[in-house]
């Protein structure tokens, strides 16, 4: 059994309607997602807005109620776990926007020590020392614990968010677009740092993102989501060099090439993929335009294709 095992996870949100505001239908935000993640690895969950990638992450950590399916972490079933158990302490989340995810009225000391206060009984002094250690770990000066979030730059704030996430020495971190709101040079800083602490603390990452450049850089395995379902899953290598699903191909083709010499070729390639996408859409998606069940290609590579026969 893998370190994190998600089995057929579903998160459906009711749609209210009609004169009496009854539930008339459901939005299938996550519709049967399965993934498994090995300890110490980074798994990338990719998709466009509305694909359900963030909801998946939130359901794993319990911020969203799973309609069906199971989440097993380190051998324990943590599906819809609400209480502050030790398992919850082992799974933490980093949020997208470092500007809104930190309470502007609290000092860094209070922000970072909040999870400590929830789970551990420390004296004021011990708490302060722990926070100072954490600040050093994320590369911020220990004196800055009495400052407020607005006194920091975007990259520094994101590192404060990370300090809060690693305060309880978690084993799994769910990072929801941790660098999307940051400039490239700051992004580099945060990505480097995430790699460093991964090694240092033996962390496992579930990295949610839409920037394929970043995902490619960070992840060992990647799952591609489209409208609540997986369309393809495989190692980074397999996804980028040998994409099987037309949706993945299109996504990969859409990444701008950093070399201006390839401009024309890239444009042409993208045009070809687009034509293929339009022509063969019905071969890759069912009548509702949703992805099929995943079929194995290799041991690690799975693609959503209709069953043959």
């Amino acid at each position: 059994m893998a370190f994190l095992e998600v089995e057929d996870l579903k998160v459906h949100f009711p749609i209210k309607g009609g004169i009496f505001g009854r539930t008339i239908d459901h939005v299938r935000a996550v519709d049967g997602v399965s993934l498994s993640l090995e300890k110490g690895k980074t798994y990338g969950l990719v998709g466009e807005s509305g694909s359900g990638k963030t909801t998946t992450g939130r359901a794993i950590i319990g911020l969203e109620k799973a309609t069906a399916g199971t989440v097993t972490f380190d051998g324990q079933d943590i599906t819809n776990l609400k209480n502050k158990s030790d398992v919850r302490k082992d799974v933490q989340m980093i949020f997208q926007d470092p500007y809104s995810s930190l309470n502007p009225k609290k000092r860094v000391l209070d922000i970072v020590s909040e999870p400590l206060r929830n789970y551990e009984n420390l004296t004021k002094k011990e708490e302060r020392i722990r926070v100072q250690e954490l600040m050093e770990l994320v590369g911020l000066s220990p004196e800055s614990i009495l400052k407020y979030p607005h006194e920091f730059s975007g990259g520094q704030r994101q590192r404060i968010g990370i300090a809060r996430a690693v305060a309880l020495k978690p084993k799994l971190i769910i990072a929801d677009e941790p660098v999307s709101a940051l400039d490239v040079s700051v992004q580099a800083q945060v990505l480097n740092f995430m790699q460093d602490i991964q090694e240092e603390l033996d962390l496992t990452y579930l990295f949610i993102g839409h920037d394929l450049g970043v995902i490619k850089h960070m992840c060992d395995n990647i799952g591609i989501m489209y409208r609540g379902r997986y369309v393809e899953e495989g190692s980074t290598e397999e996804i980028f060099t040998n994409p099987q699903h037309i949706y993945t191909k299109r996504l990969v083709a859409a990444i701008p090439d950093i070399d201006p010499k390839n401009r024309e070729a890239q444009r042409q390639f993208r045009q070809e993929v687009k034509t293929e996408y339009e022509q063969s859409f019905n071969d890759y998606f069912d009548e509702e335009g949703l992805a099929y069940q995943l079929q194995p290609v290799t041991e690690t590579h799975r693609v959503a294709l209709p069953e043959k026969g």
Partner: peptide, 24 residues
């Protein structure tokens, strides 16, 4: 040059990206 070196697209996967010191 620093900007180019901090973009993940160009760099080797899992390698260290270049970080510009200090802040804007």
């Amino acid at each position: 040059r620093s900007l180019f070196d901090s973009v993940p697209n160009k760099a080797e996967a899992k390698s260290k990206l270049h970080v510009i010191q200090g802040i804007v």
